[in-house]
């Protein structure tokens, strides 16, 4: 039965992980605007020309920077 001690420890750690994930999501502003992202995700990143796709790569790199 002593395995229960470990199981409880693991389950608490997991739950703590979810709590931290929630805190992070609030901190990064995901709870501020719950409409715009739903529209944004539907826009297509359509490479029109090679020049533009190179541009896009640069943009994606920019986007990966965390928001201030």
């Amino acid at each position: 039965m002593n395995i229960i001690f470990m199981l409880i420890g693991v389950s608490l750690l997991m739950a703590l992980g979810f709590l931290l994930a929630f805190v992070w999501s609030v901190k990064s502003g995901q709870m501020e605007d719950d409409y715009t992202p739903s529209v944004r995700m539907l826009f297509e990143d359509k490479p029109l020309s090679t020049e533009l796709s190179a541009n896009n790569e640069k943009i994606n790199a920019d986007k990966s920077q965390p928001e201030l």
Partner: peptide
């Protein structure tokens, strides 16, 4: 894409 000086722009539609 229009001006290099703009680093990031975000819209809050509501």
């Amino acid at each position: 894409k229009i001006n290099k000086g703009v680093q990031n722009s975000r819209v809050d539609f509501l």
